[in-house]
Nucleic acid binder design. Structure first.
Lengths: 240, 240
DNA sequence: TATTGCAATATTGTCGACAATCTGATTTTC
DNA sequence: GAAAATCAGATTGTCGACAATATTGCAATA
């Protein structure tokens, strides 16, 4: 706006560092759903005290990917079919809104960034880096939220994204094979560049829907496996 | 739904207690927007150590009503016109979705609860308890979220509610006079009991809209007052 | 006079230790 | 032998103190 724009100095607190580490571990599946986070063990591994670790965990609980039971422990959230369906349906609603808000803000810079992120997805696909593939796809998808000029919406979506990333990562690890190399985003990007907003909104619904169908089927198989009392077994041990 | 339903045991940690206290202080305006939260002072006033206080503050930061700058402090969020407009527009979108999801779940119990909460609003109005009036109105409004059988949506709305309550409280304190005693919820309740979902959705939009119009006008006057660099003055002192 | 450098102070971030609570095995009791 | 009571171990919650950083006031300097 006024002359040169400087980015704010990066905040270097252990807490922030820990949040990043933990979030990544959860979203990539290194920490499995239902797994308990032992404070003492993690703090020793990270060479930090429990204070910043606990504060970081509080943040992630509020972010919705950890759940806490007083005096019992803090656990990675379980993944149920219902959770995924909820994320799916809310995502549809928010997508429609985000496209509506972003539509008038589409500048040349927007289109450039759109292509850039699309390229990132394609490259990750070529390299068969599944984790990165999920990340880049979600980043491409997040563009309409970043350009909506609506911080509350962006916030809401980022919270949703954490869960989505976790679900997709779970799925990928279970399938244990590279994702189809066919580019499913081509149409999406094309429509976002076009002049038909309604069409873009409709496609966003349908397109995301397809990805989700498989995800829900996968989650359903998970639940069938250990049906009965609990949604997913609470593995205590994990890794040494 | 199997036989007798028991509520879970209340978790008694200082942290949870502090979260409640702080949230209430912020939402009722006892802690003003922009105000800095001095950890030492608050921990002494509450007779607790800084550890649980800091953890509680982390939760409220993630909840969106506090904002934190490393090594500088934690502050109550500012209220800008844009914030309120964002809350407004997102609320519209979510309302529509919530009504759609709740619609098939409306049982006799739902209608009873609807009346009960409506009565609570009317009583608070009679007693001219403005703070309680805001609370009860939001609780009435929250019913469609609680019955939507969509925990993610409910979560999202509760986060939004915190902000709304803060905004409305600000407004009330500024006007410094009781709210109009005319019941604006009569029509809303009637439509939720009826058979026309689309009509209920439309009304929700328009009705909430009216309340917001005044709120936005108020916020605009606030910003005009101290226009220039910062949105709202960061009062350091507060109360002794 | 405006700006820079420095010291003193206040506040936040982090640490290690202790208290409260839960869990599981062992012992006691019928 | 089974159920209840008890006790030891492990883990979470809380505390007080120290370290790192930012802020404020004042002196030095151009």
């Amino acid at each position: 706006m006024s002359g040169t724009d400087f980015d704010p100095i990066v905040d270097t607190t252990r807490r922030a560092e820990i949040v990043s580490l933990l979030r990544r571990a959860i979203l990539t599946g290194k920490l499995e759903p239902g797994q308990k986070l032992n404070e003492l063990r993690i703090s020793e591994q990270m060479r930090v005290s429990r204070a910043p670790l606990r504060e970081a965990m509080r943040e992630l609980v509020q972010e919705g990917i950890l759940t806490s039971i007083p005096y019992a422990g803090t656990f990675v959230i379980e993944v149920t079919v219902k959770d995924i369906e909820e994320a799916y349906s809310l995502n549809q609603v928010l997508d429609e809104f985000a496209i509506e808000k972003t539509w008038p803000n589409r500048t040349e810079q927007f289109f450039d960034e759109l292509d850039r992120r699309h390229d990132a997805v394609k490259q990750a696909t070529r390299e068969e880096d599944t984790t990165r593939q999920i990340e880049t796809a979600l980043q491409l998808h997040g563009l309409i939220y970043e350009w909506a000029d609506h911080s509350l919406l962006l916030d809401t979506w980022q919270r949703l994204t954490s869960r989505l990333q976790m679900y997709f990562a779970l799925h990928q690890r279970a399938r244990n094979e590279p994702v189809p190399s066919v580019d499913v985003h081509e149409e999406y990007v094309r429509l976002l560049k076009g002049n038909n907003m309604k069409a873009a909104q409709r496609h966003a619904r349908a397109h995301i829907g397809l990805d989700f169908e498989e995800l829900v089927a996968f989650a359903r198989s998970l639940e069938k496996r250990n049906a009965g009392s609990e949604p997913v077994g609470r593995s205590a041990g994990g890794k040494g």
